[in-house]
Amino acid sequence: MNENRIAFFIIVGVLAFVGILWYAFENPALNPRLEEETYTIVRKWDVPTDLNEISGIRWISEDKIACVQDEDGIIFIYNLSTNLIEKKVNFAKSGDYEALTTADSSAFVMASSGRLFEIENYLSANFQTKNYQIPFSGKENIESLTADTLKNRLLFTVKNKDPNSDEYKGIYAFNLATKETNSLPVLKIPLNDPIFKPKDIDDDVEASSSFYPSDIALHPLNGNFYILEGKNPQLLILDSLGKPIKLHKLLKESFPQPEGITFAPDGTLYISNEGRYGTATILEVEFDE
């Protein structure tokens, strides 16, 4: 066999191998990953190392997101356009800070213990810090926080066992006028809802869940609740009355540890990932309805 024929067969073999790989990747029947993805990652930012343990985010203005990370009592103002931290607000000593939101000129940061920090005029050099204790036992591990400005309250849910029940995780309200927390939830995440049942489980088997919320956000246009889980990466959507709509599974390749979620006023959604296996990220994500 001459060299030209050998080269021809080598080229044909390589092209055939590439074609098989392409078919396997693009065919949902052979590549279940394609069926699992119910979202599109529009943009990705690798954030500076100061935010490697980013745990909470809040959209505050065009191209700017306020962030906290687990260990430092600092609010970082991160610019999406320049990929730089523009400002640091040192509001407290080191701790375990898990969530962040804003209402008017105040920022609010939630520690896992249930200690809620209010930083008045947080963008000013003359900011003032107050703190309140959520009246739970402290074992619930709170990692979520969002502002419901229409009702003048903050909302959060517990990561571990709910103080009132094993059958749900409650969404609780902190009243911004009275600075008090309702002891009963305003809404419930029903852990026995069929939405939590794996697809390969028989219909007559009751659903159960070990859903561990890592953050919560309110959709600014339709009022739906978006509840993120970082332990087993997924996103639960509830309607404004608390009825489960959809549970999106998140692939760990893109969402190694999703800990923060926020919306821009136009509905653009951002999710942050701690740098568990590398660089921490912020992702702009569009989810299928």
Rank of each mutant, 00 (worst) to 15 (best):
Ile271Lys: 00
Asn90Gln: 13
Ser210Cys: 08
Gly56Gln: 01
Val285Cys: 02
Ser106Lys: 05
Asp204Trp: 09
Ala7Thr: 12
Asn126Ala: 14
Ser183His: 12
Leu191Ile: 11
Pro32Lys: 06
Gly275Asn: 04
Lys93Met: 09
Pro135Gln: 08
Ser61Val: 09
Gln69Lys: 05
Asn126Asp: 15
Val47Ile: 14
Tyr277Asn: 13
Asn31His: 06
Ile6Met: 13
Leu241Asn: 14
Leu269Gly: 03
Glu284Trp: 05
Lys252Gly: 10
Lys139Glu: 13
Ile6Gln: 13
Ile282Pro: 03
Ser137Met: 02
Thr262Ala: 05
Gln133Trp: 09
Arg276Ala: 12
Ile271Arg: 01
Phe91Glu: 00
Val158Leu: 02
Tyr277Gly: 07
Ile119Val: 15
Glu143Lys: 00
Asn131His: 14
Ile65Gln: 00
Pro244Glu: 10
Glu253Pro: 06
Pro190Phe: 14
Tyr132Ile: 10
Asp46Cys: 05
Tyr172Phe: 15
Ala24Phe: 13
Asn83Leu: 08
Leu51Gly: 06
Phe108Asn: 03
Leu221Tyr: 02
Thr102Val: 15
Tyr39Arg: 04
Ala66Gly: 11
Ile77Met: 10
Ser124Pro: 11
Pro233Thr: 04
His219Gly: 09
Lys188Ala: 09
Tyr212Cys: 06
Asp104Arg: 15
Val89His: 02
Tyr277Val: 10
Ile85Leu: 00
Val109Cys: 03
Ile227Val: 06
Ala264Leu: 01
Asp288Ala: 06
Leu251Thr: 04
Thr129Ile: 08
Pro198Lys: 01
Gly260Pro: 10
Lys87Tyr: 07
Glu143Ala: 07
Ala173Tyr: 09
Ile216Gly: 04
Ile75Phe: 00
Phe156Asn: 01
Ala147Gly: 03
Leu176Lys: 12
Phe127Asp: 08
Leu251Phe: 10
Lys169Gln: 04
Ala7Trp: 07
Asn79Ile: 08
Gln257Pro: 07
Glu180Lys: 11
Ile60Val: 15
Phe8Thr: 10
Phe9Trp: 12
Asn222Val: 14
Phe263Gln: 07
Trp22Phe: 14
Glu286Ile: 13
Thr49Gln: 14
Lys252Glu: 14
Val68Thr: 09
Thr279Tyr: 02
Pro185Arg: 13
Trp45Gln: 05
Ile245Gly: 03
Ile75Leu: 01
Ser240Gln: 08
Tyr277Arg: 10
Gly230Ala: 15
Lys169Glu: 08
Leu176Pro: 00
Val186Phe: 07
Lys159Cys: 06
Pro32Val: 05
